[in-house]
Design a protein around this nucleic acid. Structure first.
Length: 606
RNA sequence: GGGGAGUUAGUUCAGUUGGUCAGAACGCCGGCCUGUCACGCCGGAGGCCACGGGUUCAAGUCCCGUACUCCUCGCCA
């Protein structure tokens, strides 16, 4: 007598569809038991699928058999029901889309029972992430994650449709390629057929997409996995997805237009949010000076103030030996103002110092500005020259009650500490939420960065992006004489403090390319060994070209206000690159290793 | 590689100066209940206190080490 669910009786609706307008209809729903409320005489079930929740009620006078079976139902049982849609009358549940109706069930089939789950399937879960990752298939039943992945799916669809409409071709590139030094550390794949040799998993399709341009494909894109064997962060995974784009015959602005259009459409269709285009642009130098990094969060102020020149001007007479020494040693001095109306307690500002130290600072000098511009609560106040104090107050635009935070020393460290501090303070003061956008979307292009950066370890100039980025024409004469001043056509697109993409216009002129290599100290043979195939390709009428790669995972994370990349990746890895569910990376046996000609080195003794 | 935080029932946590400290809530099991939607009521089971050493008359608690997880700096052209 059992109803032949699935084979003959098909699902008529999902659990998020039914409304008042369906009252009276006979329906069939499949799903999981989200909750049960057994009153003996009547059993209420919240039935869940990825579309929503629907209340099902089993009553003995409607269906005796189904009611008896319903008494056995437990959380996460997978079931099918048949019944009639009924009004809930006055007992509406406003929290549910389907809250005005319920299903008076006539038939029930338990497709599969469930053991008690290791954690409850709830929206607001408190279970530790490691335990959820170990049972990811259960974690993925939760609505927030279901919605994240549905959003991702939508982004994929929009991306393909937008770019294909614009004349882009979706072309694939190999994951297994040749190892090239520099850049991110590669995962290596041993070759069974070529003893002792290795493939490298692609850290990006960079070189291949340039070859597509040489081949004349003009406009390429790919939604592609990339692999990097670097330390993980909440916004970094060892394998991640990029929307990879490359175009021929374009300027930087042409690339921007394509990306802005894509993002505009994604935000519009996913969130219903209108994103103004074009995005504002900021020079790299300005970003470093005001925000301490190249991915500023523009949802709030708290800009840094550079005081290096002021301190230098006063020299020793400034009365703050630590700052003066830092400047003399080639370092910088920066300040940030916490406005009086957001006054922090002494204990809170002490905590800021702990935070700064954690970010690598030696300490955090502070000063509270008094009525007359004097400083209190500060060791600096005793020795500082009042004129320097006045000059600093003026540079900072400080008013009574403001708290000044100082950081001085090596430029890179000062920037790092101050950049972290800025975001930390903004969260503390409530300018931005701990996670998520808070409904504010500040897009930005950071442009015109230096082509090279100085590597203090090796005392040489290194490519800041990669060796194929096109320098500004007017800087080309300085490539060898003054590499530090050469700016280039590289760009990052930034959203709320996250770098969501980056790219460049590529070098296609072999002559300039040779000079860049020279500046980098790469001799011809090295260049040939590393990038020979690309250099060869550029000789055969390579078109001017450029492109960008957008971080799909980060975009999804920001779009869904997720706390972590892990929330928008179906099966992510932990901080140490392990998979809590499968146990990867795992051991392999000796025979497998012999076959691929690999012998593990002994583990270092501890 | 450096710094920090954490690990006690299935889950989230409490556990004081080392001495009835093996506890709560949710979940689970049994019973009752026809309008619940965080249903309610009664009863019950469940823990090598991450692991390994040490200190002590006595360790969940103090010390050392290991593992795992998270955050962060370095790193991520």
């Amino acid at each position: 007598m059992a109803v032949p669910f699935i084979t003959e009786v098909k699902r008529t609706h999902t659990c998020g569809q039914l409304t008042k307008s369906n009252i009276g209809e006979e329906v069939v729903l499949f799903g999981w038991v989200q909750n049960r409320r057994d009153h003996g005489g009547a059993v209420f079930i919240d039935l869940r699928d990825r579309d929503g929740l629907t209340q099902v009620v089993f009553e003995p006078d409607i269906a005796k058999e189904a009611h008896e079976l319903a008494g056995q139902l437990r959380l996460e049982y997978c079931i099918g029901i048949k019944g009639r849609v009924a009004s809930r009358g006055t007992q509406v549940n406003p929290k549910l889309k389907t809250g005005e109706i319920e299903i008076k069930a006539t038939d029930l089939s338990i497709f599969n029972r469930s053991e008690p789950t290791p954690f409850l399937i709830e929206d607001d879960i408190e279970t530790g992430e490691d335990k959820r990752l170990a049972h990811r298939y259960l974690d993925l039943r939760r609505r927030p994650l279901q919605q994240s992945l549905m959003t991702r799916s939508k982004m994929n669809a929009i991306t393909r449709s937008y770019l294909v409409d614009k004349g882009f071709l979706e072309l694939e590139t190999p994951f297994m390629g040749k190892y090239t030094p520099g850049g991110a550390r590669n995962f290596l794949v041993p070759s069974r057929l070529n003893p002792g040799r290795f493939y490298a998993l692609a850290e990006s399709p960079q070189l291949y997409k340039q070859l597509f341009m040489v081949a004349g494909f003009d406009r390429y894109f790919q939604i592609v996995k990339c692999f990097r064997d670097e330390d993980l962060r909440l916004d970094r995974q060892p394998e991640f997805t990029q929307i990879d784009i490359e175009m021929s015959f374009v300027t930087q602005d042409d690339v921007f237009t394509v990306v802005e259009g894509l993002i505009k459409r994604v935000w519009e269709e996913v969130l219903g949010v209108e994103v103004p285009v074009p995005f504002p642009r900021m020079n790299y130098d300005e970003s470093m000076a005001k925000y301490g990094n190249d991915k500023p969060d523009l949802r709030f102020g708290l800009e840094h103030i550079l005081l290096t020149d002021v301190v230098r001007q006063f020299g020793e007479s400034g009365g703050v030996p630590m700052m003066w020494e830092a400047v003399q040693a080639g370092g910088i001095v920066k300040a940030m103002v916490i406005p009086a109306e957001k006054a922090l307690s002494r204990a809170e500002s002490d905590k800021l110092e702990d935070f700064a130290k954690q970010a690598g600072a030696k300490g955090l000098a502070r000063a509270k500005v008094g009525e007359g511009g004097d400083w209190t609560q500060s060791p600096l106040s005793k020795t500082i020259n009042p004129e320097l104090r006045q000059a600093i107050n003026q540079a900072c635009g400080a008013k009574p009650g403001d708290l000044l935070l100082f950081q001085f020393g090596k430029e890179s460290l000062v920037h790092t500490v101050m950049a972290n501090l800025r975001v930390h303070v903004a969260k503390k003061l409530g300018y931005i939420p701990e996670y998520g956008s808070g409904g504010v979307w500040k897009f930005l292009w950071v442009v015109n960065p230096p082509l090279f950066e100085f590597d203090e370890e090796t005392n040489t100039w290194a490519a800041a992006h990669h060796a194929f980025t096109r320098p500004h024409d007017e800087d080309v004469p300085h490539l060898l004489s003054d590499p530090g001043r050469v700016k280039c056509y590289r760009y990052d697109v930034v959203l709320n403090g996250f770098e969501i993409g980056g790219g460049s216009i590529r070098l296609h002129d072999p002559k300039v390319q040779a000079e860049v290599f020279k500046a980098l100290g790469i001799v011809d043979e090295d260049a040939r060994a590393k990038f020979g195939f690309l250099l060869d390709a550029l000789k055969f009428g390579a078109p001017p070209h450029g492109g960008i790669a957008l971080g799909m995972d980060r975009l999804a994370m920001l779009l869904t206000s997720a706390e972590s990349l892990r929330d928008v990746i179906p099966f992510p890895k932990t901080k140490t690159g392990t998979d809590m569910m499968t146990g990867a990376p795992g051991d392999v046996d000796d025979r497998q290793l012999r076959e691929i000609h690999v012998r593990p080195a002994p583990l270092p003794q501890k």
